[in-house]
């Protein structure tokens, strides 16, 4: 036992707890399995350890020791690769795939959460050494609060308004409102689609949002989340029964056509609203220099 033992133990514990809090199993169904959780808790523990020993190393004038943080960085980049590869492999077996954009978003989240753990462990250990356990507790509370804020991005309901819309056929063409979805030839399929299909129109709240919801990855994420939460009327070998999203070129609205097994329009609208806005899909044309100049900023 020396003067750093307690701060390091404290930092590692808080860091691991932070990882456990950030590791949630929800409707995205990942990581659902126990072993997946164990892997991420173990990596979180390692991350917490790295963060916690950084300050004592500096105080002991072991400056070179800090370079191991670079090893940590490459280690966690590996985590991102691992997640991406696993999910991409499994994606081909999903009835409604996640899509690469969604997978990349999940992989980024896994990597960045490990860095949050490092920061948490680093700051709490620092606070413990600088003040005492009371100061460390305060910093812990702040860190956990910030982590909570950082881990939840925005959701679709903040950027679009969602309205239920009847699906109808014009000849063989399937429409949601006035948006053409696809051509269904067989009368039998058309009946199934009329019975099980549900349509939603998402209207963008501003110009920036138009390109975000036009992103094919973002659209696939909506379809995947809805299909996971409400079930999907589809099987392999029935390619005609496929949930789709198409865009109205005139005003950027998108027409969502889904085939939920749970026919509850209210719930479906809530689920669409809760779909995360993928970081990779966000576009900000209004922030460009040209637009700013035109607005006179």
């Amino acid at each position: 036992m020396n003067e750093y033992t307690m701060p390091i133990i404290y930092g590692v514990t808080v860091g691991t707890i932070a990882r456990a809090i950030m590791l949630r199993t929800d409707y995205r169904q990942y990581p659902t399995y126990l072993h997946g959780k164990v892997i991420h808790l173990a990596l979180g523990f390692i991350a917490a350890g790295l963060g916690a020993v950084a300050i004592p190393a500096i105080m002991e004038k072991e400056f070179t020791a800090v370079t191991f943080l670079t090893i940590a960085a490459s280690q966690f980049r590996e985590v991102r690769n691992m997640e991406r590869n696993t999910l991409a492999e499994l994606d081909s077996y999903e009835l409604v795939p996640r899509g690469n954009t969604y997978i990349e978003g999940i992989a980024i989240a896994f990597e960045s959460r490990n860095y949050l753990v490092i920061f948490t462990a680093f700051l709490t250990t620092f606070a413990y050494i600088l003040t005492n356990w009371v100061g460390a507790l305060v910093v812990t509370a702040i860190c956990l609060f910030v982590n909570k804020k950082l881990m939840s991005g925005s959701t679709l309901k903040e950027i679009v308004s969602i309205s239920l819309s009847e699906i109808h056929f014009d000849g063989a063409g399937l429409y949601v409102d006035n948006i053409y979805i696809m051509n269904i030839g067989l009368p039998e399929r058309q009946e199934e689609i009329k019975k099980f299909g549900m349509g939603f129109i998402l209207t963008p709240k501003n110009f920036d949002v138009r390109s975000t919801i036009a992103n094919l990855g973002q659209r696939q994420a909506i379809l995947h989340d809805v299909s996971v939460s409400l079930g999907v009327f589809r099987d392999s070998g029935t390619p005609a029964l496929v949930p789709l999203i198409k865009r109205d070129l005139d005003d950027g609205r998108i027409g969502v056509f889904i085939l939920p097994q749970n026919q509850d329009p209210k719930k479906a609208a809530q689920i669409i609203g809760a779909v995360p806005v993928l970081e990779n899909a966000i576009r900000m044309p209004s922030e460009s220099k040209v637009s700013k100049k035109n607005r006179g900023e």
Partner: peptide, 10 residues
């Protein structure tokens, strides 16, 4: 449609 795993379009 079932055999070929395709979609029939009219």
């Amino acid at each position: 449609e079932a055999i070929l795993d395709g979609i029939s379009h009219a």
